[in-house]
Amino acid sequence: MRRLKPVKSSSKKTQAKEHAKLPIVCDVDMLRSLIRKKAVRVVDVRKAEDYQAGHIPTAVSLPLARLLADDKPETVVELLQELGITEEMPVVVYDDTFGALAARVAWTFQYVGHPNTALLETTFKQWKELGLETETKARTYPKTKHPLNVNKDMYADAGYVEAAQSQQGKLLVDSRERLNFLTEHIPTAKNIPYTMLGANGNILRKAEELKRMIENRGISPDAEIITYCGSVGTLSGLAYYALKMAGYQNVKLYPKSFKEWKSLGKPKEEFKEANYWDLSAE
């Protein structure tokens, strides 16, 4: 059972003067305290109707599909402004899909120039199971100004991935499930399925656990790692943050992932020597 700090009654007047600097993952206590201080923008990336049915207090709604419809950096910055996010403001993103959707949104925010973005440590379902407060009121905030400041270091496209395949010290990580990976993947990729990243209700394991699991794979701490998954960079978005948690500094996301790779007709590695799909009990 997890322990929660008691809620202190918060004074309405306390306004955050200095913005808190968020870690990669924001825990429940920290978020609740920031909400009380009105010092955070909480972003709910579930479907609009789920948001309407109840969400974390003060959260705004940004369904992932809306962001993906046009994720050009200029458009994303407009979204930030529309959600009332200022340049330094802490932003915490959550979903109901083990953190993968939240990760894709958080990564995009950071990519366009909002580094002070974090993932909530749990999903909305767990938030409710913990008996924490929710509200149904739809929130909007006054429009803000937010600069565009693209961080190219976080991003990889197909050309970059292709070049990385043969470069020393660069490593591709496929974060799809094992059977999908076995079936086909980008040549040279290693498999770190998203399923191994979270545990016990947390979207990501503890940093030292992640570190141990990745080190077991013999991946050197100063490697450059590019993550990808099946289609839009959600599962690999989560892997991106897992690697960051584990202490890897140089991580990139290939958001268009395997779907684009295949549509470009690029080579794949396949494994057809075993009928592993027949082990699945589905």
Binding site: V7, G54, P57, Q126, E129, G131, E135
Partner: peptide
């Protein structure tokens, strides 16, 4: 804000 939290329950 919605109902305030009473106590953390063990979901299992």
């Amino acid at each position: 804000m919605g109902k305030s939290r009473v106590s953390a329950v063990n979901p299992k």
